[in-house]
Computed example of a mutant assay.
Amino acid sequence: MTEKLYAPLPTTAGGFKTVLADPPWRFQNRTGKVAPEHKRLGRYATMSLDEIKALPVNDVTAKNAHLYLWVPNALLPEGIEVMESWGFRYVTNIVWAKRRKDGGPDGRGVGFYFRNVTELFLFGVKGHMRTLDAGRRQVNMIETRKREHSRKPDEQYSIIQNCSPGPYLEMFARYPQAHWTVWGNEADEDITPQGKVYKGYEGGEIESTPPLENHERLTKDSEIAVGKLLRDEYETGKSIKDLAAENDYSIARVRRYLNLVDTQLRPQGRTPSVQYNN
């Protein structure tokens, strides 16, 4: 299947230093709704584990290189196998937490044992190469809303480029990016990737503040998103006390979120004057 569906891997002088791959994993239950090749759902063709492992990634990468590999939660062992077959050792992972509009977990995920609201982004190293300086500050979580089936968050590209050096290769690419060499049977810009866009899966920013317990914390990206929402309300004239009551947040939490997005806070006890046109 590999030879029929895909052209040979591209090469570059000295080898690619960073590879991003989102293989078309094949699930054991190929008729269920989680199966990508389900005929009625019309998503995409898949490859066997052996076919994925046989891809000569080791031959086109530099002596020291990084690999970012998407793998479904249920296929974590297979993901580790693929990394090793490609010449990389597993180091750590980034978790994609799929969110609703209000920032809460998107419970529409599928799974035989639990509803999956996360997906794993494995990070591997070939040879010896640390992440760039930005990697020391990068948290290992991406929190965004889901898009069409199998499409990964665009935030992955900025994270990778900030943390790992080029030249960059994206395998099984579907939405080509600037500064990346792409490879895959849907990588051509003239090809429309398979995967229907369902209502509520259009991606985008968090649009309302999520309910939180007093002790519950969001990641930095989600705190910034919520802070922006609170700032918009605050700038209409609402007080911090109003925002705390409306969202069932503590005053300290509201103040911290507002400060996080550089909100110009009014002196306590004052609200802006409102002008009315006759």
Rank of each mutant, 00 (worst) to 15 (best):
M1N: 10
M1C: 04
T2Y: 14
K4T: 13
L5V: 05
Y6W: 14
A7S: 15
P8K: 11
T12R: 01
A13R: 14
K17C: 12
V19W: 04
F27V: 10
Q28W: 01
N29I: 01
K33I: 07
V34W: 14
E37I: 06
G42K: 12
R43I: 12
Y44M: 06
A45E: 14
S48Q: 07
L49M: 12
I52R: 08
P56D: 12
V57L: 10
V57N: 02
V60T: 05
K63F: 00
L67M: 13
Y68Q: 02
L69F: 10
L69I: 03
V71H: 08
P72H: 06
P72Q: 11
E78K: 06
G79T: 03
E81L: 13
R89K: 08
V91F: 03
V91A: 04
T92I: 06
T92L: 08
V95W: 04
K98M: 10
R100W: 02
R108P: 05
G111R: 06
F112N: 15
V117T: 15
T118R: 06
G124Q: 04
G124S: 01
V125L: 08
G135C: 08
V139C: 04
V139R: 14
M141A: 10
I142D: 02
E143H: 09
R145H: 07
K146P: 12
E148I: 02
S150D: 06
R151T: 01
S158M: 05
G166C: 10
Y168G: 02
Y168H: 10
M171H: 04
M171I: 07
R174L: 05
H179S: 15
W180I: 06
T181N: 00
W183R: 05
W183E: 08
E186W: 09
Q194W: 00
K196A: 13
Y201C: 15
E202K: 12
G203M: 02
E207H: 01
P210R: 07
K220D: 05
E223L: 07
I224G: 00
G227R: 04
L229I: 15
T236C: 08
G237P: 04
K238M: 13
K241G: 13
D242T: 11
A245W: 04
E246L: 13
D248G: 01
Y249G: 00
S250L: 00
S250N: 09
A252Q: 15
V254N: 04
R255I: 00
R255P: 00
Y257L: 15
T271M: 12
S273A: 12
V274W: 13
Q275L: 15
N277Q: 07
